[in-house]
Amino acid sequence: MAGMSREIDIRVRELTKHYKVPVREGGFRASVASLFRRKYRIVEAVKGVSFDIARGEIVGFLGPNGAGKTTTLKMLSGLLHPTSGEAQVLGHVPWKREAGFLRRMTLVMGQKNQLVWDVPAMDTFLVNQAIYGIPEREFRETLAEFTELLGLEGLLQKPVRNLSLGERMKCELVAALLHKPRILFLDEPTLGLDVTMQNRIREFIRVYNQRYGATVLLTSHYMADIAALCRRVIIIHHGRVMFDGELSRLVGSIAPFKVLHVALDRAVSPEDLDGMGEVLALDEGKLALKVPKDRTPEVTSRLLAELPVLDLSVEDPPIEDVIEQVFEQGVEV
């Protein structure tokens, strides 16, 4: 694959993180006792994760809550020290937190924001300009560009607390990207936003990636984000990588079935559909059928022959369902 010959920006080898968590016991006496002698238990959040990400890739980092996504992102951005294993981001070891590394990356963690609540976002931007030493002209140009891309006109002078959640998230992104980092770690950048907002932010990430050749590692609960942005996904579950590869390959191998959407001239009864596949929906002449991939041609011709078909389309199953299936069945790919 062409992408593989490109320069590697993020290299992760056997990255492991164990937390020592104090065991809390109920009751007053136990909590006093715990002041002196605490019991700990080891939580293995990340267990030997390895992957490479090439320059300019957008990789979706998926997994259920507690799978180790955020822990991995925090290690890669230098906030957490791993228990063992190695990582290099742009040639730096992240947790050494060298200025040269910090200047070229950014971390956005959902609602845990850097914007100051009571003042306009612009004031926070100015602080970042100073911290990253962005020349005035470049700052103005970047800001103008981002403002246009995100549709932020007129919002930068309002106190952050008066902005909507989506507007805040957009400003948060601007603050995080003003210094034009080469590496973006985005943890749930669209969490809790409505669909239009999600689209806008998605589009922004895509344009930023193309314009500046940035490398993006992104987690999201919304598979639409992943489907729109990421050609490649890494799935992690119980701290281990379960899948690393092209999204389309994941869909193909995990979900060996298609969904047929059929519009019918008249209502049909379920008996008419015997043996064709799993009926997902049947309502007023609209039919959705889940069919194993290898039987798709056969079922399609049967449908056309036996039923009054007006229209028929063959689609891949929704990506959400596929991912869910990965988590539920723990399929090794």
Binding site: L79, R97, M109, K112, I131, Y132
Partner: peptide, 9 residues
């Protein structure tokens, strides 16, 4: 918020 500040130079 400390995390947000720690990832800055």
């Amino acid at each position: 918020r400390l995390s947000a500040r720690l990832v800055k130079p």
